[in-house]
């Protein structure tokens, strides 16, 4: 077949007008022919234009929640399967943090919707997650202390009434964090993902950006593991400080009284 014939095939392929065999032959040819591949890409983009040309219609509002809950649930299931196959040594490092991130994300998303209905769905999710959690506990008795801490975090997350996200200050990193703030009890849980692991000489330091224009206030230091995950739980946050947001810097081990490093993550409360 000549290039011209492949291009014609590409035009048909884009709107589903070829047989499986023709489609395979075309893909094969396109692997080695940039001009036909380019034509095929254009035709597919143009075909998608038929969908874009339609007046858009918003799906049902609750469909978004149900999608996100399905995905979070499947993600939890996936990570449980993946972890079950890891060896016992790796388990201690990984099980709790990744379970936590997924659980935290479910709560984050569910709380985002706010309505009573969603809260009910959230509670069901919670029950499910707690069942999962119990399974993890049975499986890994040695995790005792971590689980204790996890329970306390779950409490905070459950009563969180302010949710926001910390994003990377530069686009060179995918790091982010979800913040669950329970303003009533002056406590918060912050779940970090994709931060670089810190070395022995440095600690990550969390800062409260004050709403009264005064300098940022340290909220403590934390370490990030090789997976890029980390969590911080804050208790007894100051009552008299208006919290405008949070920020993260990398500082000498133990932290400083005022930030000296570049802001790596930040977000508004």
């Amino acid at each position: 077949m000549m290039h011209e014939e492949y291009e014609e095939l590409a035009a048909l392929e884009a709107i589903g007008g070829v047989t499986d065999e023709e489609s395979r032959r075309l893909e094969e040819h396109c692997k080695g022919c940039s001009s036909c591949r380019h034509a095929l890409d254009d035709y597919r983009e143009a075909a998608a234009g038929l969908a874009i040309a339609l007046p858009p219609v918003s799906p049902r509002r609750d469909a978004r929640d149900s999608l996100l809950i399905q995905i979070q649930t499947e993600a939890v299931a996936d990570s449980r399967v993946a972890e079950a196959t890891e060896d016992a040594a790796a388990m201690r490092r990984r099980t709790i943090p990744s379970w936590w991130s997924a659980a935290a994300a479910v709560l984050f998303l569910a709380l985002f919707g706010w309505s009573e209905l969603r809260l009910r769905a959230l509670r069901e999710e919670l029950t499910l997650l707690e069942t999962e959690k119990n399974a993890v506990i049975t499986e890994n008795m040695r995790l005792g202390n971590d689980v204790q801490a996890a329970r306390s975090r779950l409490d905070t997350i459950r009563s969180a009434n302010q949710l926001f996200r910390l994003a990377a200050s530069t686009s060179s990193t995918a790091a982010s964090a979800n913040v669950f703030m329970d303003a009533t009890h002056r406590r918060a849980v912050i779940v970090f993902t994709d931060l670089e692991q810190n070395d022995e000489a440095h600690s990550y330091q969390l800062w409260i950006i004050r709403g009264d224009m005064k300098p940022p206030m340290s909220a403590g230091v934390f370490d990030v593991d090789a997976d890029g995950g980390g969590e911080v739980e804050l208790h007894d946050m100051p009552v008299d400080v208006p919290i405008a947001g949070l920020a993260v810097t990398l500082e000498p081990r133990g932290g400083l009284s005022a930030p000296s490093g570049a802001v790596l993550l930040q977000g508004k409360a």
Binding site: L54, P55, P56, V57, R64, L67, I71, F108
Partner: peptide
């Protein structure tokens, strides 16, 4: 693809109405 399941929410907000119309 890198595991950020929360970004699916953004994906849905961006493309949901075009896909649903189709």
């Amino acid at each position: 693809a890198a595991g950020d399941t929360v970004a699916v929410a953004d994906l849905y907000d961006r493309h949901g109405s075009v896909l649903y119309a189709l």
